[in-house]
């Protein structure tokens, strides 16, 4: 990509920590997937987690999201002052944690609009009676949310033209965007993105980068973002901070430029000879 990090960044305020992970331990059988991991994410920043395959990045994300089977063996996860370590995923969604998946998990049989609307369902209050007869309050509420989705979400992710298509039949790159749109529709405070660039072509990567920055910077969203990504160009361009995992342990934590030049990072992740990889732009 031809742009430079400095051109992409806007001045923004990075606040106090919104998510704190303390001494997280997680083992699967004999494999220590997370080994005493601690870090914090500050309000408003884009934090990238990088590391070789199998380093525990996605495990960390799933633990923050609370998927079944991903409860920490020990350690704590605190979100906005609340200890959410043992909360089920749906409760975490209600306090503003939203995510996309490495392997797309959309409602394949539904239309794009329905997918995104489902992301919005938590913000609706209609009971079973109003929703059922679909009259009065329910119609108004639905119209309000749909308008919001059309104006804000579709606009941000540029998927308006697909709104009535069946999701499962759309191209991969578009599905990735729809997943981001659905996650945004929940109005999250913390957005977890698991390899949003995987499988995208260069142009799609540029678009997706733009969408992620919008989600982070625009007033409408102002999401704090945790990004797990292999595309070093993107990571170095848009991250405020980067942490590096290797074999379930955190080996570096700091601004991109600093992390990039740490010898242990280069050794663990990039291989000693492949210095070109890290500077891919």
């Amino acid at each position: 990509m031809e742009w430079k990090r400095e051109e992409l960044r806007v001045e923004k305020e990075i606040g106090e920590p919104i998510l704190v992970v303390e001494n997280a331990m997680k083992a699967f059988g004999g494999l220590q997937a997370l080994n005493n991991i601690s870090f914090e994410v500050r309000r408003g920043e884009i934090l990238s987690i990088i590391g070789p395959n199998g380093a525990g990045k996605s495990v960390m994300l799933n633990c923050i999201n609370g998927l079944p089977g991903y409860r920490l063996d020990s350690g704590r996860i605190v979100f906005d002052g609340q200890d959410i370590t043992n909360w089920p995923p749906h409760k975490r969604a209600h306090i503003g944690i939203s995510r996309t998946f490495q392997k797309i998990e959309l409602f394949g049989g539904m239309t794009v609009l329905d997918n995104v609307k489902l992301g919005r369902h938590m913000k609706m209050n209609t009971g079973w009676w109003d929703g059922g007869i679909y009259w009065g309050k329910a119609v108004k509420e639905e119209a309000k949310h749909r308008k919001w989705i059309e104006e804000k979400v579709f606009e941000t992710c540029e998927i308006e033209i697909y709104r009535n298509r069946i999701t499962g039949m759309l191209p991969y790159g578009v599905q990735k965007r729809i997943e981001l749109a659905r996650a945004l529709a929940m109005g999250p405070r913390l957005l977890l993105l698991d390899e949003p660039m995987a499988g995208l072509n260069l142009e799609e990567v540029e678009d997706m980068t733009r969408f992620i920055l919008d989600a982070n910077e625009e007033k409408e969203w102002n999401c704090t973002i945790i990004l797990v990504e292999h595309d070093m160009g993107v990571v170095m361009d848009i991250s405020d901070r980067v942490i590096v995992f290797d074999w379930g342990a955190k080996i570096a934590d700091g601004p991109p430029e600093e992390v990039q030049n740490k010898p242990e990072v280069i050794r663990a992740y990039l291989g000693e000879v492949e210095e070109t990889y890290i500077t891919r732009r």
Partner: peptide, 30 residues
Amino acid sequence: IYFFQRTRTGLAMQATADDEMAARSMGIPA
């Protein structure tokens, strides 16, 4: 059928049917 198609619990059931993992992370208690 009315319940399944027109209420939010019904909607949650349809979403879970389609993709349980996604439904969970969107605030639906499976």
